[in-house]
Nucleic acid binder design. Structure first.
Lengths: 155, 155, 155, 155
DNA sequence: TTTT
DNA sequence: TTTT
C-alpha cells in the first residue's frame, strides 16, 4: 500500500532473561518479555494508580538477537523500535489463536540498552553499552517463516 | 515505572467503516480495523512480495471517537498514535484468550486524516480535514473499564 | 553514547519542487522544504489560530534522493523519518552561523508518499506510490561530508 | 493543515544543568542542552567513529519545566518527545538569525527520566523517578510569545 | 515476569 | 514556499 507505516516504540524492563532459539538453518532468534508501566493519580479518589503492560518482542534480526543474547538480562532497561505483527497458531485444543508481537527484523528495527550493564549482571569487558541498528539484514525477505522455528508452542 | 514509553505509530487504511459503541454511562467508543502493508522485492526470486498487517484500534477518547464516527469511512487513510494494550477475554468455549489492541485514550493519542474526505464518502460541509490531539480527556482515569462495554464478543 | 536516540517524524507538504544536487563523486542529494501546520481554537478569543512550521530536509540516501527527484513535486504530501543535525556554515559576512536540518541518511531514514502522485503532476506509469526504507546505504559512513557538496550557499 | 505531524523523539544526556527562566507573567520555562551520539565502524578504515549532536530543548509546559528544575541535572539521561520549531532573532550585529529548537509545550510533549536520580545528584526523597505527560496545559495557546521572555540573548 |  |  502506498505510504504505510507500522512502528512501535517501547521503553521498559525485561521481565526475564532473553529466550534464544535457533532456526533450522542456523539463525538465532531472541524473544523478550518487556514491561511498560504508567502511573497516574485517580481524578476522583486521588489515589495513585499503576498499570503494567507486558509486550512480547521477537528479534529476527540476527545481530540484534546476538546483542540480546550477550548483553541483556532480566531487569535490563531497553529502548525498542519494531513493528506490530499478529500471527495465527494452533492452540492445544486444536483451535486457531492469534498472538500479537513486536517484531524486530532489521528492516526498521532498533534495540538500545538504557542501563549500563543490560540488567543485573556485572558488565562484561566488551559491553557495547549502546547498540546501533542492524544493518546486515535489511529487507523483509530476511524474516524467517514461522515454519523455520523448531518450537511447537507459540510462546 | 520510571521512564517507561509505550507508543504505536501507524499509517494505513480502514478496512471497514468505524464501529461505534456506547458505554453504559453514555460515552462513545470507536473501533477501527486498520491495514498497513509493506512490499519488497525478494532477494532470491526477485519477485515482488507484499504483506498486509491488520490492526485493531480502539478509541476511548471521546472527541477522537466522535471524529471517527463523523468523518472516517472504509478506505480512509489515517495517521494514528496510540499505545499497545493486551486484554483477556473469554472465548465462546469458556477459555481465556488475549487480544492486543492499539488504544487511543486521549492521554497520548492522535488521529489524523490523511486524505481529504476520510474515505470514499463525499466530504461533509464541516469536514475538519485534520484533527488535533484530544485535550479534553487526558489522563488514564478516563479509560472505561471493559465492563462498561455492553458487548460480549471481543471483536 | 550508550542508548541514544535521535528521531524526527514529520508529515507535511512540500513548499516547492525538490532541489537535486550532485556531489563531487557523483552522488545525488535532495533537499526538500516541508511545511507542517497545526491549528487550534484560542482559549480566550475563541478564534481559529494556525501556525505553520517550515523544515529543511536533506536526503543523503541516494535511493531516497532518486525517489524525491522522480516522484515528488511541490505540494506533495509526505511522511518523513530522519534525524536532527545542526551544522555550522559561514554567512556572507564571514561569521559563523548554524542551521538545523532533518537528515535522511539511509541509516534510519524513511520517505513515504502520502498522496497518489507525489504532488500536482500526473503520476508516471511506474509511480511506486509508496516507498520503502533505503537499504543500500545503511551506515553513517555514507554521509557525505559537507565538503563534498559543490555549493557555497548553505541553503 | 489536514493531517500534519511534527514530532521529535530524543534520548540523550544533559550537557549542563537545566536553565530556568520566568516569563513576565510568572510562568517557568526550562531550557535543556541535550546530547545524542551515534557510533559506527567506518566501512573503509575500519576505525570506530562517533558523532555527537547537541539539541536545544525548550520546555514551555510548566509542569514539565518544574520537573526539569527539580529533578534534572547535568548528566541526566532523558527521553523527550516534542516538536520542531524554528524562530528568528536578532544577532548582536542586528542581523536576522534563526535557531531551531525542540519545543515541549504540553500539547504533545513528554519528558521521562531514564536514570534513577536525574543526573549526578543524590535523589531527593520525593523524586518521582518518572514523569507523565503534562495534562494541565494542552493547547498551543499556552505557548508564551517570545516577547514574554526577559532575555535578550537567544541561547 | 520487570521497574520505581 | 505547502496544505486545508
Amino acid at each position: 500500500m502506498a505510504g504505510s507505516v507500522n512502528k512501535v516504540i517501547l521503553i521498559g524492563h525485561l521481565g526475564r532473561d532473553p529466550d534464544i532459539r535457533t532456526t533450522q538453518d542456523g539463525r538465532k532468534i531472541a524473544s523478550l518479555s518487556l514491561a511498560t508501566s504508567e502511573s497516574w493519580r485517580d481524578r476522583n479518589s486521588g489515589e495513585r494508580k499503576e498499570r503494567t503492560e507486558w509486550h512480547r518482542i521477537v528479534i529476527f534480526s540476527e545481530p540484534l538477537a546476538k546483542v540480546a543474547e550477550q548483553f541483556l538480562k532480566k531487569g535490563a532497561k531497553v529502548y525498542i523500535e519494531g513493528q506490530l505483527q499478529t500471527r495465527k497458531y494452533q492452540g492445544n485444543d486444536g483451535q486457531d489463536r492469534y498472538t500479537t508481537e513486536v517484531v524486530l527484523n532489521g528492516f526498521n528495527a532498533t534495540l538500545q540498552m538504557l542501563d549500563g550493564n543490560g540488567g543485573n549482571r556485572p558488565p562484561p569487558a566488551d559491553d557495547p553499552g549502546s547498540y546501533g541498528r542492524d544493518t546486515s539484514r535489511d529487507t523483509p525477505r530476511d524474516i524467517p517463516s514461522r515454519n523455520d522455528l523448531d518450537d511447537d508452542i507459540p510462546f
